Simulated assay, not measured.
Amino acid sequence: MARVTIMIPTQRRPDGLAVAARSVFGQVGVDPATLELVIVDNDQVPSARPVAEDLAKNAPFPLIYVHEPKAGVANARNAGMAKASGDLIAFLDDDEEAPAGWLAALLAAQDRFDADVVFGPVKARAPAQIVEHRDYLERFFSREGPAEAGILDRHYGCGDSLIRRAALPDPVSPFAAERNHIGGEDDMLFGHMGAAGARFAWEPAAWVWEDPVPSRLSLSYTIARAFAYGQGPSSHCAAATPPDRLGVARWMAIGVVQATLFGAMAGFKWLTRAKDRAEWLDRAARGLGKTFWWGPFKIQFYGRTA
């Protein structure tokens, strides 16, 4: 029977880490003897160690604490991979909570579709005090996909995923360190895997809750993040070997059109105080990101531990 590592990277979120880890302890339909939990603390000081030590007291399977002081989510995930013993690696973020059947659903889909990576839905929940733009904010932090389980022709992010280790281009350090400060290291990895013929699958039953930190539940954060997401296609083409200059030009042209059209619509929606005005601003920001994707326009969301 395959051994499974569940990995939770964390940075200064002790309460969220505790919720995520305890949800992992409550998984059903999976033999605990095949499981281990790896917690990766990506803080300069080992701030998550006391939480991990407390959690380990009641863990139904081995809990491995890893301290990675070098800033960056790619560094954190690679440090966890170096200590993980699993043939399959399940990723859960430290602001997520997994229902009891989450892991069993991922494993069943992996076996059913012989998948190299399985993704599941993410359902964001905002605190009750968030009223303005609530629907938009919850959708922004959620992940939606097909209604039925099946093979995918695309990939999603790393949170709420199950990866077959043997399918990774590098089984120990698969995440690109150059993405530590801007994110997208998982998109880059899955893009390379897809180009190499990896098999992606979707399982709607393998869903998790996400509780975004309150400081992120604002348009100032989400629109900046939308801009950064928009930069992805252009920057991926630029980072290809050799660089895909035609691809960069195509995405930049698409971005100009999107920023112009969606921006005009966002302005109209804002003047009329339409309920969906934030959605259009988000789309315009993503278009703008495709056009302004290089050096000085990069926004740093990750890679800070101080």
Results as ranks from 00 to 15, higher is better:
residue 138 E to Q: 13
residue 139 R to A: 14
residue 139 R to D: 13
residue 139 R to G: 03
residue 140 F to Q: 05
residue 140 F to K: 09
residue 140 F to S: 09
residue 141 F to G: 06
residue 141 F to Q: 04
residue 141 F to R: 01
residue 143 R to E: 12
residue 143 R to A: 15
residue 143 R to I: 11
residue 144 E to G: 11
residue 145 G to F: 03
residue 145 G to H: 06
residue 146 P to K: 00
residue 146 P to S: 02
residue 147 A to W: 00
residue 147 A to P: 00
residue 147 A to G: 00
residue 147 A to S: 02
residue 148 E to F: 00
residue 148 E to C: 00
residue 150 G to H: 04
residue 150 G to Y: 02
residue 150 G to T: 04
residue 150 G to R: 01
residue 151 I to V: 15
residue 151 I to H: 10
residue 152 L to Y: 07
residue 153 D to C: 05
residue 153 D to W: 06
residue 154 R to H: 14
residue 155 H to M: 03
residue 155 H to P: 02
residue 155 H to A: 07
residue 156 Y to C: 07
residue 156 Y to W: 11
residue 158 C to F: 06
residue 159 G to K: 09
residue 159 G to W: 08
residue 159 G to S: 13
residue 159 G to V: 07
residue 160 D to P: 05
residue 160 D to N: 11
residue 161 S to Y: 01
residue 161 S to D: 03
residue 162 L to S: 08
residue 162 L to M: 02
residue 162 L to P: 03
residue 162 L to T: 00
residue 162 L to R: 02
residue 164 R to S: 14
residue 165 R to P: 12
residue 165 R to E: 09
residue 166 A to L: 03
residue 166 A to M: 01
residue 166 A to K: 10
residue 166 A to W: 02
residue 166 A to D: 12
residue 167 A to G: 05
residue 167 A to Q: 04
residue 168 L to C: 08
residue 168 L to D: 08
residue 168 L to F: 07
residue 169 P to Y: 01
residue 170 D to R: 07
residue 170 D to M: 06
residue 170 D to E: 05
residue 171 P to M: 08
residue 171 P to I: 09
residue 171 P to C: 05
residue 172 V to M: 12
residue 172 V to A: 15
residue 172 V to T: 15
residue 172 V to W: 10
residue 173 S to Y: 03
residue 174 P to I: 02
residue 174 P to Y: 04
residue 175 F to S: 05
residue 175 F to T: 04
residue 176 A to G: 08
residue 176 A to C: 11
residue 176 A to W: 15
residue 176 A to I: 01
residue 177 A to S: 09
residue 177 A to I: 15
residue 177 A to L: 14
residue 178 E to I: 10
residue 178 E to S: 13
residue 178 E to C: 08
residue 178 E to N: 14
residue 179 R to W: 11
residue 179 R to Q: 12
residue 180 N to Q: 07
residue 181 H to W: 00
residue 181 H to D: 15
residue 181 H to C: 05
residue 181 H to M: 10
residue 183 G to P: 13
residue 183 G to T: 11
residue 184 G to S: 09
residue 184 G to D: 13
residue 184 G to A: 03
residue 184 G to F: 03
residue 185 E to N: 14
residue 185 E to G: 15
residue 185 E to Y: 06
residue 186 D to A: 09
residue 186 D to N: 07
residue 186 D to R: 04
residue 187 D to F: 12
residue 187 D to L: 08
residue 187 D to N: 14
residue 187 D to Y: 13
residue 188 M to L: 10
residue 188 M to D: 15
residue 189 L to H: 04
residue 189 L to K: 08
residue 189 L to N: 07
residue 189 L to S: 08
residue 189 L to I: 02
residue 189 L to M: 08
residue 189 L to V: 00
residue 190 F to S: 02
residue 191 G to R: 14
residue 191 G to A: 02
residue 191 G to H: 10
residue 191 G to N: 13
